[in-house]
Simulated assay, not measured.
Amino acid sequence: MNRRPLILEGAQAASDVRDQLGLDLIAPVDPYAIAEALGIRVRFLPVSMEGFYQKGNPPRIMLSALRPLARKAFTCAHEVGHHWFGHGSTIDELKADDRQDSDIPEEILANAFAGFLLMPTIGIRRAFSSRGWKPATANPLQILTIASEFGVGYETLLTHMSITLDDMPRNVRIALGKWTPQRIRKRVLGDDDADGLVVLDSKQQSASVDLDVDYALAVPIGAAVSGEVLISRQTIEGYDVYTAVSRGRATVTTPDWQVEARVAPARFTGPANYRFLEDPDE
């Protein structure tokens, strides 16, 4: 089937949502905040699936607490897409990160919506050009850095750039796809005892970053970190690395930006807006 009209429709819908909420077409966004702004309640459950959209008053999104951090964010945006298009209640089973295997129009629309909501074309291209990087010559750490800025997975960004945006040659996509996030962590950190790695460099423009306990966060050397949820781990070339050790929030400040780092327990279950609260009764 010809997916292109559906992909373009999804892209336009993502732009419309950003416009309705007063968000520009460049900066990274928080899919949970967008869901809340649209009146959707989001909750994590210990179930083996991607997510579930329940149409109703209020509408609800249920996400698997068992999936990787960035995957949950993409699935949240995907379910918001079902809501925006007026689809009925849907269950999304476990799928690979690229999620290109469905020929169901509603799924193609929701995937395109999520991709463009989290990875807007102008924003992704700005992220490369501002750093002097090019998709055709990008290395794994560069891809991880931009994926970190937009809160998406490594493979998700590769798929969006190579298939949806057509900004990356196929041979480059194949070569970069041989690098798993675990392999990148080991290359960067020297070991693989962190559950995940998020890299924020001096060019990033995100206002917040989500982490799970035991994730590593790399920030520019000399960045000021306030709060007790991040502890110093090591220094590598160009970065101080911290480990997320407990639920809560921290502020990371550099001369170029300030970010709120929000740490949730691994496999957190409950309302999404409680995930990083030190006291869930607050």
Rank of each mutant, 00 (worst) to 15 (best):
D192S: 15
D192I: 09
D192W: 01
D192V: 10
D193I: 14
A194Q: 06
A194G: 09
A194V: 05
A194H: 02
A194Y: 02
D195G: 15
D195K: 13
D195L: 14
G196S: 11
G196N: 12
L197S: 04
L197N: 02
V198D: 04
V199I: 15
V199D: 04
V199T: 06
V199P: 05
L200Y: 05
L200G: 02
D201N: 11
D201V: 01
D201R: 04
S202D: 11
S202C: 01
K203E: 08
K203R: 10
K203Y: 15
K203M: 11
Q204F: 09
S206V: 12
S206I: 07
S206R: 15
A207N: 12
A207Y: 06
A207M: 05
S208C: 00
S208I: 10
S208Q: 13
S208E: 13
V209Y: 03
V209K: 04
D210N: 11
D210I: 01
D210T: 06
D210V: 01
D212H: 06
D212E: 15
V213G: 00
D214Y: 01
D214S: 10
Y215I: 01
Y215R: 01
Y215Q: 04
A216L: 07
L217I: 13
L217F: 12
A218P: 05
V219D: 00
V219C: 04
V219P: 00
V219W: 03
P220D: 11
P220A: 13
I221S: 14
I221W: 06
I221L: 14
I221G: 05
I221V: 15
I221R: 14
G222I: 09
G222Y: 10
G222S: 13
G222R: 12
G222Q: 12
A223P: 07
A223I: 06
A223M: 08
A223N: 05
A224M: 10
V225I: 15
V225T: 07
S226Y: 07
S226T: 14
G227D: 05
G227C: 08
G227N: 11
G227R: 09
G227P: 01
E228P: 00
E228N: 14
V229F: 02
V229Y: 03
V229E: 12
L230H: 06
L230E: 07
L230V: 08
S232I: 01
S232T: 00
S232H: 12
R233L: 13
R233M: 08
R233V: 01
Q234C: 09
Q234G: 05
T235W: 03
T235N: 13
I236W: 10
I236S: 06
E237K: 11
E237F: 08
G238H: 11
G238K: 09
G238R: 02
G238V: 08
G238L: 08
Y239F: 15
Y239N: 10
Y239S: 07
D240P: 00
D240R: 07
D240S: 14
V241Y: 03
V241L: 00
V241A: 01
Y242Q: 03
T243F: 05
T243V: 14
T243W: 03
T243G: 04
A244Y: 06
A244R: 04
A244P: 12
V245Y: 04
V245D: 06
V245R: 09
V245S: 06
S246I: 04
S246G: 03
S246A: 12
R247V: 12
R247A: 01
R247N: 03
G248P: 11
G248C: 07
G248Y: 08
R249G: 06
R249M: 11
R249I: 04
